[in-house]
Design a protein around this nucleic acid. Structure first.
Ligand SMILES: [Mn+2]
Ligand SMILES: [Mn+2]
Ligand SMILES: [Zn+2]
Ligand SMILES: [Zn+2]
Lengths: 132, 132
DNA sequence: CAAGTAGTTTAGAACGGTTTTAAAGTAAAA
DNA sequence: TTTTACTTTAAAACCGTTCTAAACTACTTG
């Protein structure tokens, strides 16, 4: 399925801008990135896009599940092209994230979900500090 | 141990402002709160404090382990008076956090920590959505 | 105790990431 | 083709947080 089809499939109009973003993000190589990182890549690819559009795109892509946002308290939002269920190491000093594949971790015994709610995803973050 | 001693013990001068904050936060009842929540409580208690001081205090209290900051991608920092090792349910709609005690969850099989780094804390977040 | 000094508080400005505004442009539907 | 709904954009606004620099306070030393 090509990127145009992926956008259509997700219920998004394949505009020029969304195609530029899709061509960068959905290239098969997973990455963690900020809105600014993405805008830089867009420039590098010979295109340009207002920062408002970058944010609009990311919100749409996220809402339809083409990308995820990582749960971290850094002041800049971090997005993830890896939409599989997985977890992260977080280097708190640098903000760098490293994927932990689902098989590398196992949660035994989960707490009871509060009345009236559903489990909508579990995120495990293992914070790292440099040795010494 | 009284709050003045707790501050001294943590290497912090027990200034008037830090005592006001300690008297609110270290009252034995755990809570999740923002800087603004705390400033409101300070006003309610009949005192006042500049927002810069509220942030200065929170940073100091956090750095010496009197409080924690929760790992969440909400745009406002959320602090926690519960410094025990524990985890959270996150209602993504409202931002509300609910504690998960350490005994209620168990991580079996942890991934290998990358070379040169140490595990500096694990945080599990179970995102909740309302049923229906 | 008094004097010195290192740390703290503060109002206000600055900062930086993100969202809003409103007008022009584009994609899809009729 | 015409109409309609959606999208893009530059610029401004927004808002949580940090910085600045001057006044103040806690602690140390004599
Ligand atoms: Mn923040
Ligand atoms: Mn954020
Ligand atoms: Zn990832
Ligand atoms: Zn908690």
């Amino acid at each position: 399925m090509n990127n145009k089809e992926k956008l259509r499939n997700a219920g998004l109009r394949p505009t020029k801008q969304r195609m530029i973003v899709a061509n960068i993000l959905l290239d098969g190589f997973n990455r963690h990135f900020t809105a600014e990182n993405l805008q830089d890549e867009i420039y590098t690819s010979g295109n340009s896009m207002s920062i408002a559009t970058v944010y609009n795109c990311l919100k749409k892509f996220k809402n339809c599940g083409l990308i995820k946002q990582v749960e971290t308290s850094k002041d800049t939002a971090i997005f993830d092209t890896n939409t599989d269920y997985h977890h992260h190491f977080l280097n708190e000093e640098t903000g760098e994230l490293i994927d932990i594949e689902n098989e590398e971790i196992s949660l035994h015994k989960l707490p009871e979900i509060p009345q009236g709610y559903l489990n909508n995803g579990i995120e495990v973050i293992i914070k790292l500090k440099r040795q010494n």
